[in-house]
Design a protein around this nucleic acid. Structure first.
Length: 565
RNA sequence: CGGGGUAUAGCUCAGUCUGGUAGAGCGUUGCGUUUGGGACGCAAAAGUCGGGGGUUCGAAUCCCUCUGCCCCGACCA
């Protein structure tokens, strides 16, 4: 590509509210332009990169036996009514009407459409298993779009849906998709981890997220240093602590603690560590309030809490009014000692080990010290309620957990029969009987990968693309071609011979001064740079510099071809 | 949904408190000089100051209202 014939649109300034590196760099490099909140135009440069990602995804999906199709982005309400998700999906579902007032939504995902397709197309078990995929624009009306295309409302996604007669068949395709994803992210040159994920309300047997590791990631993941265990923080189990509960040595006392509300306040007031404090959260259960007790230095894991039998699927904190009405004290002064009998007290595994702890006194401005389980406070049940922390033992018994941040770029999921059941998707089995199909679904955030890669790979000068994602692998920069026609000719000849070898090459023939040209090429992250100048021509060599090299070096044309393979 | 901020030239922003003919940098256009790390000079084009209403002799500036956008929060007591 001759850059004089392309549309490169780098800019020096970027809005103050572009917070993370990938967002800033994508704007500066001119890869994207914002149209409205969460909506972006992909410029020719940005699109080249996204197409690279798409290409690798497509190749690996095809290799893994999936078949590409394309479904509409707009979907009819009736189909979503069949699965109950027209209501359940919530505010993320963008609903629209046509001129006849018929209702539609812009597809945030395609389970309904593909299952409808499958129930019409698939009649016999002999057609199974089958795995359909598409690369399609989706729209989710995010509460708060941010970080550019990282969390945009409209985004490009590869989604695949597999259909099976048996769970075993599903497990096979699931494993194949897991392998395909591993190949995809490896080929893309990203540092990633496949982590166990919570299967959520849908149930199902297995789910893994593929997380690109980056400090700016919105997800927390836990991984072991002694095995390949890795899980989303929501999912990672906090093991039962070793050893017995300590023996009480103190007597229970009520202490006046005016305005001491938070755990931090309590540690300061009593001069104790946070892990000697019990914090008590009141949540709404099936049947009135439920108390959840945790150590002061631990955080509630809402997914784990939501699964408690006493709760109805999700953990919703009681309001201050509810708490006042039930306990007679404000939040901040709630504790397990002397709670009304009708409130179940569910205690975290670690919290249950404590002795002589401090907790709220269930009276405003009062805390209890020297409190002990059983002697002073009921335990209805002990459960894993907390998020794991750095240094916890790995749930598989090997090694210690570390916490890292990640960007979710892929998700594989064994769906089961939920959608097949709702939409009546059956095939005739070898006994001639209709059987519900079992499904899997597998997503990859194509546009998000572009941002995630930049997040992981950039420096002060700009983007550092992995070779597989770069808009061009090499750029030929021409210095002062007008002064000496031989320079222009040499650059043109090199550009031609690189292109003929199938190496994607950009020729920077825009006529910029060297400084501006170099800065642009570094900003847009081209992995290899060749400078053709009067100087080099005289010496009979080319000047090569890799994107992350400190200096350039002389190289012959033959060595260059060898280097670029 | 709650709180806060913001809206001025193509872009990034000053100017608003204290009302008096609209500003800068970058970019763009023309001419000239330059040409190995974002050059310089001269000239030029470019803004219904987010929309509507009000106060005033006079509003980017004060008041009301609507809208867009951004940030924080939506439970960890």
């Amino acid at each position: 590509m001759r850059l004089s014939q392309f549309h490169l649109a780098t800019v020096k300034e970027v809005p103050a509210d572009a917070e993370i590196a990938s967002h800033r760099l994508m704007l500066r490099a001119g890869m994207i332009r914002r149209l409205a909140s969460g909506l972006y135009t992909w410029s020719p440069l940005g699109l080249r990169v996204m197409r690279k990602v798409e290409g690798i995804v497509r190749e690996e999906m095809d290799r893994a036996g999936a078949i590409e199709l394309l479904m509409p982005s707009i979907q009819p309400r009736e189909l979503w009514e069949e699965t109950g998700r027209w209501q359940k999906f919530g505010g993320q579902l963008l609903k629209i009407k046509d001129r006849k007032q018929q209702e539609f939504c812009y597809g945030p995902t395609h389970e309904e459409v593909i299952t409808d397709f499958a129930r019409n197309e698939l009649k016999s078990y002999k057609q199974l298993p089958i795995n359909f995929y598409q690369i399609q624009t989706k729209f989710r009306d995010e509460i708060r779009p941010r970080f550019g295309v990282m969390r945009a409302r409209e985004f490009l996604m590869k989604d695949a849906y597999s259909f099976h007669l048996t769970q075993e068949s599903l497990a096979e395709t699931y494993a194949a998709m897991y392998q395909a994803y591993t190949r995809i992210f490896t080929r893309l040159g990203l540092t990633f981890r496949a982590v166990q994920a919570d299967t959520g309300a849908i149930g199902g047997n297995a789910s893994h997220e593929f997380q690109v590791l980056a400090d700016s990631g919105e997800d927390a993941i836990a991984f072991s240093d002694g095995s390949d265990y890795a899980a989303n923080l929501e999912k990672a189990e906090a093991l039962v602590p070793v050893g017995e509960r300590e023996t009480p040595t103190e007597t229970l006392a009520r202490v006046d603690t005016p305005r001491v509300r938070t755990v931090e306040d309590v540690t300061r007031y009593f001069n104790v560590a946070a892990h000697r404090v019990i914090k008590t959260l009141l949540v709404r259960g099936h049947d009135g309030l439920v108390a959840l007790c945790l150590r002061g230095d631990h955080e509630l894991n809402e997914v784990k809490a939501g699964k408690l039998a006493e709760l109805s699927g999700e953990s919703v904190l009681a309001s201050e009014e509810e708490i006042l009405a039930a306990i007679g004290a404000r939040p901040g002064f709630i504790g397990p000692v002397g709670l009304p009998q009708n409130i179940p007290v569910i205690v975290d595994r670690d919290a249950a080990q404590l002795a002589d702890f401090i907790c709220g006194g269930n009276t405003n401005d009062v805390h209890c010290s020297g409190a002990n389980w059983l002697r002073d406070a009921r335990i209805s049940r002990i459960a894993d309620l907390r998020n794991v922390v750095e240094g916890d033992l790995s749930p598989d018994g090997k090694g210690v957990l570390h916490i890292a941040r990640g960007i979710e770029v892929g998700h594989v999921f064994q769906l089961g029969q939920k959608y097949a059941e709702a939409l009546g998707a059956t095939v005739i089995d070898d006994q001639g009987k209709p059987q519900l199909m079992t499904m899997g679904c597998y997503g990859i955030g194509v546009s998000r990968i572009v941002a995630a890669a930049i997040e992981q790979r950039h420096d002060d000068a700009g983007i550092v693309w992995p070779e597989a994602m770069a808009p061009w692998r090499v750029v030929v920069c021409v210095i002062n071609p007008k002064k000496d026609p031989a320079v222009a000719e040499a650059a043109e000849a090199l550009y031609q011979s690189l292109s003929q070898r199938g190496i994607e090459t950009a020729l920077d023939d825009r006529g910029l001064r060297p400084g501006g040209m170099f800065a642009d090429m570094e900003l847009i992250g081209i992995p290899h740079r060749i400078v053709v100048s009067e100087r080099g021509l005289a010496a009979g060599t080319l000047e090569y510099r890799g994107r992350q090299d400190a200096d350039s070096r002389a190289i012959t044309e033959q060595d260059l071809f060898a280097l670029l393979g």
